[in-house]
């Protein structure tokens, strides 16, 4: 743990603060949420890493999707994700958000979560043990350290594609786009 290294704090305070203060919005979808209470309570105690659950997306910066995502849930996930302030990190938890898992041939469950919102890291398993959550968190620290946890930047950059995929599946979305889409966005990029 480099939490006590003062030089790092002085050089990159934003990065270090982001690393050690992950306030998590646990999106209670599917069966994975049953693994979260042991993580945050006395047995494994996520708070010693600075991870606490918060009640609203506006206060959080870590978005955990804990299980399969049905179409109706995807709608709520996109709205929650867009309400969170930057920088924000998304972690898919369990095998269902990765490739569908045991719902690989289901008619109503999405198969690849990273085609609809950007995902910074995955914790594989069905279900992952609470230890795996902490391994995932330490990997996320490494990614933040190396500037590789840039899902929120990718979302802004490829918003056309993300919004297109969302509308392809869910039909017309009843909320306005978060960023400028279409030609305007390409002009900004240019």
């Amino acid at each position: 743990m480099d939490r006590n290294k003062i030089g790092k704090w002085l050089k990159q305070p934003a990065k270090m603060a982001n690393k050690y203060s992950l306030n998590a919005v646990y999106f209670c979808t599917g069966c994975g949420i049953i693994e979260i209470p042991p993580v945050i309570t006395a047995r494994w105690d996520a708070e010693r890493f600075g991870i606490i659950p918060v009640a609203t997306p506006r206060q959080g910066n870590l978005f955990m999707i804990t299980g399969y995502v049905s179409l109706k849930t995807l709608r709520a996930i996109i709205r929650t994700y867009e309400q969170m302030p930057d920088p924000k990190y998304t972690v898919g938890f369990g095998s269902c958000p990765i490739n569908g898992g045991m719902y690989w041939d289901s008619y109503n469950t999405i198969k690849h979560l990273d085609r609809y919102i950007p995902v910074d890291g995955w914790i594989a398993g069905c279900m992952p043990r609470p230890e795996a959550v902490f391994i995932g968190v330490t990997h996320l620290w490494t990614l933040i350290e190396k500037d590789m946890a840039n899902g929120y930047l990718r979302y802004r950059e490829h918003y056309d594609q993300y919004r297109g995929n969302q509308e392809k599946l869910l039909g017309k979305l009843d909320w306005p786009p978060l960023y400028a889409t279409g030609i305007a966005q390409k002009e900004i990029a240019a």
Binding site: P13, A14, A17, N18, Y20, G50, N61, D86
Partner: peptide
């Protein structure tokens, strides 16, 4: 740490 993180968050 939390407050520092919040100041750097939009």
């Amino acid at each position: 740490i939390d407050i520092l993180r919040l100041f750097f968050q939009g």
